[in-house]
Design a protein around this nucleic acid. Sequence first.
DNA 1: TCCATTCTCTGACTCTAGTCAGGTTTTTCC
DNA 2: GGAAAAACCTGACTAGAGTCAGAGAATGGA
Lengths: 298, 298
Amino acid sequence: MDEVMIAQVRRFNRVVTQQVGALTDRFLARDRPLGESRLLWEIGSGSDGRDVRSLRTALDLDSGYVSRLLRSLEASGLVTTERSPADRRVTLARLTEAGEAEKDVLDERSDELATQLLEALNEGQRDRLVAAMAEVERLLTAATVRIAPADPEDPAARHCLRAYAAELNERFETGFDPGRSIRADAADLRPPAGLLLLATLHEAPVGCGALKFHGTEPAELKRMWVDGSARGLGVGRRLLAELERRATAAGAPAVRLETNAALTEAIALYRSAGYVETDAFNDEPYAHHWFEKALPPG
Amino acid sequence: MDEVMIAQVRRFNRVVTQQVGALTDRFLARDRPLGESRLLWEIGSGSDGRDVRSLRTALDLDSGYVSRLLRSLEASGLVTTERSPADRRVTLARLTEAGEAEKDVLDERSDELATQLLEALNEGQRDRLVAAMAEVERLLTAATVRIAPADPEDPAARHCLRAYAAELNERFETGFDPGRSIRADAADLRPPAGLLLLATLHEAPVGCGALKFHGTEPAELKRMWVDGSARGLGVGRRLLAELERRATAAGAPAVRLETNAALTEAIALYRSAGYVETDAFNDEPYAHHWFEKALPPG
DNA sequence: TCCATTCTCTGACTCTAGTCAGGTTTTTCC
DNA sequence: GGAAAAACCTGACTAGAGTCAGAGAATGGA
C-alpha cells in the first residue's frame, strides 16, 4: 500500500475525529450523559416503539447498561417502556412527548453544527466539501462491508436468500416461483457440495452469492444478490471476485451462470468481469442468457 | 443553507465518527488509558522536550490532570521530565527509549488501521477515497479558520505582522526595510483610525489583513498576509471580503492598495476580487502596482 | 525589594461508562 | 410437560476522565 495514501488517511482521521467528533459529542450532550442522548436519539420516533434488543446491537452496549440508561430516561420522563404484546419477554421503548421535544432539540443542534461548518465556506468550497463528504462516506461504508462464508441455514443467510427470491419475483415479467426454477437447496450450497458467501455491513446482511461445485466441470454461480441500500459500493464485484477465488481453490476450471434479461446491472457486471455469453448449458426456465468465464488453474 | 447539504454533513459526521473515531480509539488504547496514549503521542520525539503548557493547550486538558498523566507515564518508564533551564517554573517532558518504542507501536497500529481500511477497496475506489479525504480535510480545516478583529499589539497579531515583514524581505528582490516603507503603526491599525483582522486556526494565527481609514476618502488595505501552512484554503479571500465589509460599514467609498510585482498570488487575488489597477496614488517605494475597488454604499 | 502572576503539582472529589454475575419471566423446542 | 434458551433487569463493582481548590516555587514588573 502506498505510504502517501496511508499518511493521508491518518491525517484525515486525526483532523476529522478532532473537529467533527469532539463537536458532535459536545453538541449531543446537553446536561445529560452522552450515553443517554445517544440512546434517546436511537429510540427515535417510531410509533410502535423500539425493541431494546435492537437498541443494544445498534449501539453495541451491554444489556444491563442499556437497561439502566432506559430507567434513567424514564425517570426524566423522556421515555416510556412496555412489554411487547407479541413476545412478552421483549421490552419496547418509546419517546414521550417530552422525549420527542428533546430529540428535536438534538436534531436542531446537529443541524446547527452542520450549518456552522458550512457557513465559513464560500459556495464553491461548500459544494466541493459536500461532494467529497458524500464520496468519503460512500467509500468508507464500502470498505466496512465484510465478505465471509456462511451456512445457508444461518438467519442472515436466509434473509438474503428470501430477499433474492422476492426481488426476482418482483422484477421478472413472469414473476418468480422457486419451485419451477432449478433447485439450489441449503445442502447444495454447503461445503463440499458448494458454498455461500455473505456480505455484511456492521451486523446487517447486505448481499450474498453462492457456488455449486461439479468436480472438474465448471462451477455454477447462484444466488447473487445485493441489497438496494448497498448498491454502488462494489459489493457485487467483490462477491464475484471472492467466489471466483474460491472456485479456483476448489479446482473448478471455470464458472458458469444463467441469468434473466431483467437483471441488467448483473449482466453488465458479469460482462465487465470477463464473462462471455455462451449457449444454454441447462434448461432453467427463467434464464435468457448463459455466461461462462475460464479460471486460471489453481 | 441547503437542507440536502446539511443532511449530507450530518450523515458524514455520523458515519465517520462511528467508524473512524471508534477504531482510532481502540487502536490507540492498548492496555493503557486512552489519555496516556494521546499524551505520549503528543509529546512526540522532539529532542528538546515538550513543555507541559503546550501539551495542555494542544489536548485541552486540565493542568492537574496532565500532571497526573505525566506521573503515570513516568512511573511506567516511558517519559522523563525536568525543569526548563530557561524558566524553571516550566516542566519539559521527553520520551525515554521505551517511550519512543511505544510511540512507534502506536504509529504502526495507526498505519495498520489505515491499511486495513484501504485494503477492502479496489484500486480505483482507493484513489477516489484518498482524494476525497484530502479534500474533506482541506475544506474542514478551511472551515475552522476564524476571522476576527484583534489589537495590533496582541501577541498573535505581532507574530503575523513580523511574519509579514519577514516574508516581504525574503521575496522582494531588493529586500524589505519597514523604515523605508510608508508607515502603518499599531495606532494606525486600531479603531477608529483603522483596524486589523486576524485569521486563526484553532489557537494559532495563520493570517492577517488591515485597513487604514481616511474618512470619506478610500480606505487603504495593508498588511495582507497568509501563513504558508494555510494557503489554498481561501483565507486571503475571506480576509479581503471581511475587510471590504468593514470598510463599507465605516463609510469608505472604496478600498485602495499598493503591491509589489513579486506578490503574484496576491495580485491575482485582488484582480479576481474585482480590484482594478489604477495610477499610483502614493509614493510607496516598494510598490509596482496600485489597485482600487469601489464599494457599494453602506 | 515586594507583590502579582505564572506554572506546576497534590489531594480530594464527582460522574460517566462499562463489566459481570446472577435472577425472573417468557418462549421455544423436543 | 419440562428443559433449554431468550430477553431483560438488578446489584455490586471497577476504571477512566475530568474538576476544583489550594499550595509552593520561580519569575517579572513597579
